[in-house]
């Protein structure tokens, strides 16, 4: 038992390597690249906002649905954070509960978003503003839906106990993704709903 390898491991043992598995890094960089997609979408919004005066709406968007919806999504970030905590301390039933609640909140968000889309006075083909609004929020909803699918898989896996606890990073990975979707919404919300009030 002679080994530099092993002794190296001793030194590193402080940080639980579990949270830094390849899968976790993988999702972090996936998030980075997806984040970039939204960054470029928002860039497009700001660019068009300054250069397309003629076709830009004059009144800000209504916050009646969007604000509560934002709060719902924020809340769901909290519930998944809780679920992850529970899971890592071995409380699978609590974790399952957290995941299910997150799923429900996410589903509510998507439904409200649909309602909001229906109420809009513009459409994706009515002008650049509409094209941008629907593409950006559409992209975001698509991400929420993917998040919901991931949640569904996690719920199934946790419920069936198929995830041995060393694979718990599957839950962390799902949670990281969900937080990301949430953060993206905040920047979309800020851009489309709040900045018009600033000017």
């Amino acid at each position: 038992m002679v080994d530099a390898v092993a002794s190296g491991a001793e030194e590193q043992a402080r940080s639980p390597s579990i949270a830094r598995s390849s899968g976790w890094w993988g999702i972090i960089f996936t998030i980075a690249t997806e984040g970039a997609v939204f960054a470029y979408l928002l860039f497009s919004y700001y660019y068009m906002a300054i250069s397309s005066h003629a076709t830009w709406p004059t009144a800000p968007l209504s916050l009646k649905l969007a604000l509560p919806n934002t709060l719902i999504l924020l809340l769901s970030s909290g519930t998944i954070w809780w679920a992850e905590r529970q899971y890592s301390t071995g409380k699978s039933t609590n974790a399952l509960l957290g995941l299910v609640v997150t799923f429900i909140l996410g589903a509510i968000f998507v439904s409200i978003q649909m309602v909001e889309w229906h109420q809009m006075s513009f459409s994706p083909t009515s002008g650049p503003y509409g094209s941008l609004y629907f593409t950006t929020t559409g992209f975001h909803v698509a991400h929420v839906v993917v998040g919901l699918l991931i949640l569904l898989a996690l719920i199934g896996w946790v419920a069936s106990g198929i995830l041995e606890d060393r694979r718990q990073n599957a839950v962390s990975v799902g949670a990281a993704y969900w937080h990301f979707v949430d953060a993206v919404w905040l920047s979309v919300f800020f851009t489309y709903y709040l900045t018009p009030y600033l000017s």
């Binding site: 092993a6 491991a9 639980p16 390849s22 694979r167």
Partner: peptide, 9 residues
């Protein structure tokens, strides 16, 4: 298992 930690707490 996807990996075995060399040492975990």
């Amino acid at each position: 298992l996807s990996f075995r930690p060399l040492r975990t707490t």
